[in-house]
Protein backbone atom coordinates (compact mmCIF):
# COMPACT_ATOMS: atom_id res chain seq x y z
CA UNK A 1 0.00 0.00 0.00
CA UNK A 2 2.66 2.53 0.98
CA UNK A 3 4.64 1.41 -2.07
CA UNK A 4 1.65 2.18 -4.19
CA UNK A 5 1.36 5.70 -2.76
CA UNK A 6 5.08 6.17 -3.24
CA UNK A 7 4.90 5.12 -6.88
CA UNK A 8 1.82 7.25 -7.47
CA UNK A 9 3.48 10.35 -6.08
CA UNK A 10 6.68 9.72 -7.98
CA UNK A 11 4.64 9.21 -11.12
CA UNK A 12 2.78 12.46 -10.63
CA UNK A 13 6.04 14.36 -10.26
CA UNK A 14 7.63 13.06 -13.45
CA UNK A 15 4.22 13.08 -15.10
CA UNK A 16 3.80 16.78 -14.49
CA UNK A 17 7.02 17.36 -16.39
CA UNK A 18 5.75 15.28 -19.29
CA UNK A 19 2.53 17.21 -19.06
CA UNK A 20 4.24 20.54 -19.47
CA UNK A 21 6.15 19.28 -22.48
CA UNK A 22 2.91 17.91 -23.89
CA UNK A 23 1.14 21.25 -23.55
CA UNK A 24 3.96 22.88 -25.47
CA UNK A 25 3.51 20.42 -28.34
CA UNK A 26 -0.20 20.96 -28.39
CA UNK A 27 0.11 24.70 -28.74
CA UNK A 28 2.39 24.43 -31.75
CA UNK A 29 0.41 21.64 -33.32
CA UNK A 30 -2.86 23.48 -33.00
CA UNK A 31 -1.64 26.63 -34.64
CA UNK A 32 0.78 25.38 -37.26
CA UNK A 33 -0.17 21.73 -37.76
CA UNK A 34 3.46 20.85 -37.10
CA UNK A 35 4.65 18.39 -34.50
CA UNK A 36 7.84 19.89 -33.17
CA UNK A 37 10.25 17.00 -32.95
CA UNK A 38 12.87 19.38 -31.60
CA UNK A 39 10.81 20.18 -28.52
CA UNK A 40 12.72 17.98 -26.09
CA UNK A 41 16.05 19.22 -27.33
CA UNK A 42 14.91 22.80 -26.85
CA UNK A 43 14.15 21.91 -23.25
CA UNK A 44 17.52 20.19 -22.84
CA UNK A 45 19.54 23.06 -24.21
CA UNK A 46 17.67 25.63 -22.13
CA UNK A 47 18.37 23.54 -19.04
CA UNK A 48 22.02 23.32 -20.04
CA UNK A 49 22.10 27.11 -20.33
CA UNK A 50 20.65 27.39 -16.85
CA UNK A 51 23.24 24.96 -15.49
CA UNK A 52 26.13 26.78 -17.11
CA UNK A 53 24.96 30.17 -15.93
CA UNK A 54 24.48 28.82 -12.44
CA UNK A 55 27.95 27.29 -12.48
CA UNK A 56 29.46 30.63 -13.43
CA UNK A 57 28.12 31.92 -10.14
CA UNK A 58 24.92 33.63 -11.08
CA UNK A 59 22.21 33.33 -8.45
CA UNK A 60 19.77 30.52 -9.15
CA UNK A 61 16.68 32.63 -9.94
CA UNK A 62 18.62 34.79 -12.38
CA UNK A 63 20.17 31.79 -14.11
CA UNK A 64 16.76 30.19 -14.51
CA UNK A 65 15.14 33.42 -15.68
CA UNK A 66 17.84 33.86 -18.32
CA UNK A 67 17.42 30.25 -19.41
CA UNK A 68 13.69 30.80 -19.84
CA UNK A 69 14.38 33.93 -21.82
CA UNK A 70 16.82 31.91 -23.91
CA UNK A 71 14.10 29.29 -24.49
CA UNK A 72 11.69 31.97 -25.62
CA UNK A 73 14.19 33.46 -28.05
CA UNK A 74 15.12 30.04 -29.34
CA UNK A 75 11.46 29.28 -30.00
CA UNK A 76 10.98 32.60 -31.76
CA UNK A 77 14.09 32.07 -33.88
CA UNK A 78 13.04 28.58 -34.92
CA UNK A 79 9.60 29.78 -35.87
CA UNK A 80 10.90 32.69 -37.87
CA UNK A 81 13.79 30.96 -39.63
CA UNK A 82 12.61 27.42 -40.15
CA UNK A 83 8.87 27.08 -39.70
CA UNK A 84 7.54 30.21 -41.34
CA UNK A 85 9.22 29.56 -44.70
CA UNK A 86 7.53 26.16 -44.75
CA UNK A 87 4.10 27.26 -43.64
CA UNK A 88 2.33 25.35 -46.39
CA UNK A 89 4.42 22.19 -46.20
CA UNK A 90 3.62 20.48 -42.94
CA UNK A 91 5.61 17.34 -43.70
CA UNK A 92 8.70 19.29 -44.61
CA UNK A 93 8.29 21.42 -41.52
CA UNK A 94 8.23 18.25 -39.40
CA UNK A 95 11.42 17.02 -41.01
CA UNK A 96 13.00 20.40 -40.32
CA UNK A 97 12.14 20.12 -36.64
CA UNK A 98 13.84 16.74 -36.58
CA UNK A 99 16.92 18.38 -38.04
CA UNK A 100 16.76 21.18 -35.47
CA UNK A 101 16.56 18.65 -32.68
CA UNK A 102 19.59 16.83 -34.00
CA UNK A 103 21.55 20.04 -34.46
CA UNK A 104 20.71 21.19 -30.92
CA UNK A 105 21.89 17.87 -29.53
CA UNK A 106 25.12 18.21 -31.45
CA UNK A 107 25.60 21.76 -30.23
CA UNK A 108 25.09 20.57 -26.68
CA UNK A 109 27.76 17.91 -27.08
CA UNK A 110 30.18 20.35 -28.63
CA UNK A 111 29.66 22.90 -25.89
CA UNK A 112 29.17 20.72 -22.86
CA UNK A 113 30.46 17.29 -23.78
CA UNK A 114 28.61 14.08 -23.11
CA UNK A 115 28.75 13.95 -19.31
CA UNK A 116 25.58 14.34 -17.38
CA UNK A 117 25.30 17.52 -15.40
CA UNK A 118 23.09 18.45 -12.58
CA UNK A 119 21.36 21.53 -11.35
CA UNK A 120 20.64 21.79 -7.66
CA UNK A 121 17.09 22.15 -6.56
CA UNK A 122 16.04 25.64 -5.55
CA UNK A 123 14.49 24.26 -2.39
CA UNK A 124 16.49 22.92 0.52
CA UNK A 125 16.74 19.17 0.54
CA UNK A 126 14.18 17.80 2.93
CA UNK A 127 12.22 14.65 2.88
CA UNK A 128 8.58 14.81 3.66
CA UNK A 129 6.60 11.92 4.94
CA UNK A 130 2.96 11.52 4.18
CA UNK A 131 0.69 8.48 4.00
CA UNK A 132 3.71 6.35 4.67
CA UNK A 133 5.42 7.61 1.53
CA UNK A 134 8.48 9.79 1.37
CA UNK A 135 8.69 12.74 -0.95
CA UNK A 136 11.76 14.87 -1.52
CA UNK A 137 11.13 18.56 -1.23
CA UNK A 138 12.14 19.10 -4.84
CA UNK A 139 9.32 16.87 -5.97
CA UNK A 140 6.90 19.04 -4.07
CA UNK A 141 8.39 22.07 -5.73
CA UNK A 142 7.90 20.45 -9.12
CA UNK A 143 4.27 19.75 -8.35
CA UNK A 144 3.79 23.30 -7.12
CA UNK A 145 5.41 24.84 -10.19
CA UNK A 146 3.42 22.59 -12.50
CA UNK A 147 0.22 23.55 -10.70
CA UNK A 148 1.08 27.22 -10.93
CA UNK A 149 1.92 26.88 -14.61
CA UNK A 150 -1.37 25.24 -15.38
CA UNK A 151 -3.24 27.99 -13.55
CA UNK A 152 -1.22 30.59 -15.39
CA UNK A 153 -1.90 28.98 -18.74
CA UNK A 154 -5.58 28.68 -17.95
CA UNK A 155 -5.65 32.37 -17.13
CA UNK A 156 -3.80 33.15 -20.34
CA UNK A 157 -6.06 31.07 -22.56
CA UNK A 158 -9.37 31.66 -20.84
CA UNK A 159 -8.97 35.15 -19.49
CA UNK A 160 -7.00 37.22 -21.96
CA UNK A 161 -7.73 38.38 -25.45
CA UNK A 162 -4.56 37.01 -26.88
CA UNK A 163 -5.36 33.63 -25.34
CA UNK A 164 -8.83 33.60 -26.86
CA UNK A 165 -7.40 34.62 -30.20
CA UNK A 166 -4.90 31.79 -29.86
CA UNK A 167 -7.64 29.25 -29.23
CA UNK A 168 -9.74 30.70 -32.02
CA UNK A 169 -6.81 30.41 -34.37
CA UNK A 170 -6.29 26.81 -33.35
CA UNK A 171 -9.91 25.91 -34.06
CA UNK A 172 -10.32 27.80 -37.29
CA UNK A 173 -7.43 29.80 -38.70
CA UNK A 174 -9.47 31.08 -41.64
CA UNK A 175 -12.16 32.57 -39.44
CA UNK A 176 -9.49 33.90 -37.10
CA UNK A 177 -7.97 35.75 -39.99
CA UNK A 178 -11.37 37.19 -40.84
CA UNK A 179 -11.62 38.38 -37.24
CA UNK A 180 -8.47 40.43 -37.69
CA UNK A 181 -6.06 37.99 -36.04
CA UNK A 182 -2.65 37.62 -37.63
CA UNK A 183 -2.07 33.90 -37.78
CA UNK A 184 1.68 34.41 -38.02
CA UNK A 185 1.66 36.23 -34.69
CA UNK A 186 -0.09 33.29 -33.10
CA UNK A 187 2.37 30.85 -34.61
CA UNK A 188 5.27 32.85 -33.17
CA UNK A 189 3.46 32.93 -29.84
CA UNK A 190 3.09 29.16 -29.92
CA UNK A 191 6.81 28.67 -30.42
CA UNK A 192 7.78 31.21 -27.79
CA UNK A 193 5.41 29.57 -25.37
CA UNK A 194 6.81 26.17 -26.13
CA UNK A 195 10.35 27.49 -25.67
CA UNK A 196 9.39 28.87 -22.27
CA UNK A 197 7.55 25.73 -21.19
CA UNK A 198 10.43 23.60 -22.44
CA UNK A 199 12.93 25.62 -20.44
CA UNK A 200 10.82 25.30 -17.30
CA UNK A 201 10.43 21.56 -17.81
CA UNK A 202 14.16 21.20 -18.38
CA UNK A 203 15.09 23.17 -15.27
CA UNK A 204 12.61 21.18 -13.18
CA UNK A 205 13.78 17.82 -14.41
CA UNK A 206 17.50 18.53 -14.17
CA UNK A 207 17.74 17.95 -10.39
CA UNK A 208 15.82 14.68 -10.75
CA UNK A 209 17.38 12.87 -13.70
CA UNK A 210 20.57 14.80 -14.47
CA UNK A 211 20.89 16.55 -17.79
CA UNK A 212 22.95 15.55 -20.77
CA UNK A 213 22.78 16.02 -24.50
CA UNK A 214 20.29 13.22 -25.14
CA UNK A 215 18.00 13.72 -22.14
CA UNK A 216 15.92 16.13 -24.18
CA UNK A 217 14.99 13.53 -26.74
CA UNK A 218 13.60 11.29 -24.01
CA UNK A 219 11.58 14.09 -22.40
CA UNK A 220 10.37 15.22 -25.79
CA UNK A 221 9.26 11.79 -26.86
CA UNK A 222 7.46 11.15 -23.62
CA UNK A 223 5.80 14.52 -24.04
CA UNK A 224 4.52 13.36 -27.39
CA UNK A 225 3.15 10.19 -26.01
CA UNK A 226 1.40 12.23 -23.34
CA UNK A 227 -0.06 14.36 -26.11
CA UNK A 228 -1.36 11.36 -27.97
CA UNK A 229 -2.81 9.83 -24.83
CA UNK A 230 -4.74 13.02 -24.30
CA UNK A 231 -5.68 13.38 -27.94
CA UNK A 232 -3.43 15.43 -30.21
CA UNK A 233 -4.35 19.06 -30.02
CA UNK A 234 -6.21 18.99 -26.76
CA UNK A 235 -4.26 20.88 -24.05
CA UNK A 236 -6.33 19.63 -21.14
CA UNK A 237 -6.00 16.09 -22.42
CA UNK A 238 -2.28 16.62 -22.93
CA UNK A 239 -1.86 17.58 -19.32
CA UNK A 240 -3.91 14.66 -18.08
CA UNK A 241 -2.01 12.41 -20.49
CA UNK A 242 1.29 13.53 -19.00
CA UNK A 243 0.19 12.70 -15.47
CA UNK A 244 -1.26 9.40 -16.63
CA UNK A 245 1.93 8.40 -18.40
CA UNK A 246 4.06 9.38 -15.42
CA UNK A 247 1.96 7.29 -13.08
CA UNK A 248 1.84 4.28 -15.39
CA UNK A 249 5.60 4.36 -15.85
CA UNK A 250 6.18 4.76 -12.18
CA UNK A 251 3.91 1.86 -11.30
CA UNK A 252 5.52 -0.28 -13.98
CA UNK A 253 9.00 0.45 -12.70
CA UNK A 254 8.08 -1.67 -9.69
CA UNK A 255 7.99 -4.74 -11.89
CA UNK A 256 10.02 -3.93 -14.99
CA UNK A 257 13.62 -3.03 -15.72
CA UNK A 258 14.22 0.61 -16.50
CA UNK A 259 14.67 -0.16 -20.20
CA UNK A 260 11.30 -1.83 -20.57
CA UNK A 261 9.79 0.93 -18.49
CA UNK A 262 10.82 3.31 -21.25
CA UNK A 263 9.26 1.03 -23.85
CA UNK A 264 5.87 1.22 -22.14
CA UNK A 265 5.33 4.76 -23.28
CA UNK A 266 5.95 3.83 -26.89
CA UNK A 267 3.92 0.67 -26.83
CA UNK A 268 1.14 2.76 -25.38
CA UNK A 269 1.70 5.29 -28.16
CA UNK A 270 1.38 2.68 -30.88
CA UNK A 271 -1.67 1.11 -29.29
CA UNK A 272 -3.37 4.48 -28.99
CA UNK A 273 -2.54 5.46 -32.53
CA UNK A 274 -4.02 2.25 -33.81
CA UNK A 275 -7.03 1.84 -31.61
CA UNK A 276 -7.90 5.24 -30.18
CA UNK A 277 -6.45 7.85 -32.47
CA UNK A 278 -8.53 10.51 -30.75
CA UNK A 279 -6.71 9.86 -27.48
CA UNK A 280 -7.70 7.93 -24.40
CA UNK A 281 -9.93 10.70 -23.16
CA UNK A 282 -10.08 12.56 -26.43
CA UNK A 283 -13.16 13.14 -28.57
CA UNK A 284 -14.26 16.08 -26.41
CA UNK A 285 -12.69 18.62 -28.67
CA UNK A 286 -13.97 16.96 -31.77
CA UNK A 287 -17.49 16.81 -30.48
CA UNK A 288 -17.31 20.46 -29.61
CA UNK A 289 -16.58 21.29 -33.21
Amino acid sequence: MTDLVQFLLGGLVIGSIYAIAAIAYTGIYNITGVINFGQGDMAMISAMVAISLYETGLPYPLAVALAILFGALLGAAIERLAIRPLRNHVLRAIIVTIGIGGALEGVAVVLWGTEARTLPSPVAAHTLHAFGATLPSHSLAVLAVAGALVCGLALLFQGTYIGRAFRACAVNPFAARLSGIEVSTMSALAFVLSGVLGAIAGVMVAPITLMQYDTGLAIGLKGFVACMIGGLGNPVGAFAGGLFLGVVESLASGVLSSGWKNAIAFLLLIAILLFRPGGLFGELERRAR
Partner: peptide, 21 residues
Protein backbone atom coordinates in the same frame (compact mmCIF):
# COMPACT_ATOMS: atom_id res chain seq x y z
CA UNK B 1 36.27 15.11 -33.38
CA UNK B 2 33.30 14.08 -31.26
CA UNK B 3 29.75 14.91 -32.09
CA UNK B 4 30.27 17.52 -34.74
CA UNK B 5 28.79 15.10 -37.26
CA UNK B 6 25.46 15.27 -35.43
CA UNK B 7 25.42 19.05 -35.70
CA UNK B 8 26.23 18.81 -39.37
CA UNK B 9 23.52 16.24 -39.96
CA UNK B 10 20.91 18.32 -38.20
CA UNK B 11 21.92 21.50 -39.95
CA UNK B 12 22.04 19.75 -43.32
CA UNK B 13 18.54 18.43 -42.84
CA UNK B 14 17.23 21.89 -41.95
CA UNK B 15 18.94 23.67 -44.81
CA UNK B 16 18.07 21.09 -47.42
CA UNK B 17 14.45 20.79 -46.41
CA UNK B 18 13.97 24.54 -46.50
CA UNK B 19 16.04 25.47 -49.50
CA UNK B 20 16.26 22.44 -51.75
CA UNK B 21 13.26 20.17 -51.25
Amino acid sequence: LGYYDVVVFGALLVVITIFCP
